[in-house]
Design a protein around this nucleic acid. Structure first.
Lengths: 343, 343
DNA sequence: GTGAAAGCGCTAACAT
DNA sequence: ATGTTAGCGCTTTCAC
């Protein structure tokens, strides 16, 4: 492939002039500029960004590491970041860790080696060691959808307590009074927070509404299947008319079991999820859930990252932006007719 | 950040030795190796991949450009390619063109500038000019899910005629006899091919089954809404009991209209899509569709790409791999009870 | 405004 | 086995 010096020779100018045409066209005489651009076109010159970054010492790219690209939240994050980046003439490189923590480390290291100007990280678990390493190398890193609780980097979060609150509040608003919160142990941040929000909404309702908490081993469909079996009898006995599953995947599994056992959703029991995950949209009934604002999260994350890059290591104060979640009402809580009017 | 020569100084060896430790450890004496690795650890050295690529003239990364990462087919493609790449110690960089053709061009150029060793492209429309440019630069490019019809590069396709055939065949198998194929004009490859497959299945059924073809302006939900309105009367009149929508999104919109008008799906009419797109899973009823084999497509694409890279510009024969689609049966054609038994 | 030259951090001969 | 050195393609002073 032709290099910048081939272009220079072809155009009959010096190598440095071609570089100026590429980077500071204002500093070049119009006639020269045209000559060089013609040469570039004729030779089909394509700048080598490796050499460019090496020489310039800076990059127009930021890296985005997501733990699972098949989760629609992370897709939305990627799209939000990319759109904003495009507006700014920057580039977002996306790496998918495919739910493997070692792959996530590899992805972070890859971006570190590539000397990207900053990294957006949307992890599932604490990744503080890896992040600390990256940041020690002087590479700004913004956490997405995960609260380190240490204020040691910028973060963009959704108010997960509000997620739980909105969910419980919705069920209460549609007249449900015997609720269950189905979710794993609290070691996962969102679970603990959503649970707290659910409790708050129930508490606000006074004694009118009861809440039962149902633990599950995992947050995936199999976990939901087991949990649901215990719930069927309660629904039949009139002791349960609303279920909040901490994830959509869990909710979907629960609905599946209910359907198989002849329990009517939402007639007998309303069921909803909490993370508006399109992977869970394949269920029997469209799921009411809570929107996690992925697009905004990506966009805001990029904004914070660029601010930190611009500020440099000193003179930067870490910021945490908390996004407001939004309820998405569909059939699994209000039935088909009511859901249609929402369209 | 420390460079390779910092490491050399710190370890008391020559720069080239450090390079050998990194790239050809077998050529280094055990004692020296350990000394150098210690220095690397102490200094927190991270190799600069820009410099490495520049010097070595080759890259361990390939680029994947997808037209729309929110389409689950393309997510599957990315995951398939990445998994295979990880096994081989390679890296897949994903760029999402967000349905914009100019962004797609920008993504291709970005990878061209980054001197990746090859490119996987999953486009929506003909991108031959851009691809030709990239390939002229000596960068192998494999097309995914798009048939250029020119045999000018390797391709991985799904047999879209078979997709249509499977769809029609399924409806016929469950006893439907008055079918409609709802799809846009044939300028989109998959539409034309699926239509042909549908016709073949109907023809095979002899005179028992009728087929009506319903054109739509677009393949998105609004297009489906309009098309569906004309279909309602036919269903009521008993002149239609099976609908094949060329995309899941279209199918979902049709089901929505049917639901709103009190037409029972699948009781009165079975409806199915053709591209197993999770973005369409939010509909009233889980959709029967045809699986497009995204994971296999990504994996096979990467395999072909690496083969071409290894073979070099000469001595490479372009290959087209055609994947077999698979029917995915859910409620929209067989009803809830039958769908449950499929689980 | 333009040209010459010194690196950026690394790889790969080549020499020792 | 280890050290030396010439680039890879580009940016960026610094003279002209």
């Amino acid at each position: 492939m032709p290099s910048i010096s081939d272009v220079a020779r072809h155009a009959g100018v010096a190598l440095g002039t071609v570089s100026n045409v590429l980077n500071h066209p204002a500093k070049v005489a119009p006639a020269t500029l045209e000559k060089v651009q013609k040469a570039i076109a004729e030779l089909g010159f394509v700048r080598n960004s490796n050499a460019q970054q090496l020489a310039a010492g800076r990059s127009r790219s930021v890296g985005l590491v997501v733990i699972d690209i098949s989760n629609s939240l992370f897709v939305d994050i990627a799209r939000g970041a990319q759109r904003h980046a495009a507006e700014l003439g920057m580039n977002v490189l996306v790496a998918n860790s495919d739910n493997r923590i070692d792959q996530q480390r590899a992805d972070l290291d890859f971006f570190d080696e590539a000397r990207v100007s900053g990294i957006l990280l949307a992890p599932m678990e604490d990744a503080s060691e890896d992040v600390a390493r990256i940041r020690r190398h002087g590479r700004p890193t913004v956490m997405l959808n995960y609260d380190t609780g240490r204020g040691d980097c910028c973060q963009v979060l959704v108010d997960n307590e509000e997620v739980g609150y909105l969910a419980a509040r919705h069920l209460i608003d549609i007249g449900r009074t015997s609720l269950a919160f189905v979710g794993g142990r609290d070691y996962l941040q969102p679970v603990a927070l959503r649970r707290r929000g659910v409790r708050r909404a129930v508490a606000e309702a006074g004694g009118r509404v009861t809440l039962e908490e149902v633990p599950t081993e995992n947050l995936d469909p199999p976990g939901g299947l087991r949990a649901a079996e215990g719930l069927v009898a309660k629904v039949r006995g009139g002791r349960l008319d609303g279920v909040i599953a901490v994830t959509d995947l869990l909710a979907m599994a629960i609905i599946q079991v209910f359907g198989a056992q002849g329990v009517d959703v939402p007639g007998d029991v309303a069921v909803m999820g909490c993370d508006h995950n399109s992977a869970a949209w394949g269920g029997m009934i469209p799921l009411t859930s809570v929107q996690m604002q992925g697009l905004d999260m990506g966009r805001e994350g990029l904004r914070l990252l660029l601010a930190e890059i611009a500020a440099g290591p000193v003179g930067h104060e870490h910021v945490t932006t908390v996004l407001r979640p939004e309820l998405v009402v569909r059939e699994s809580t209000v039935g088909r007719a009511a859901a249609l009017t929402q369209l």
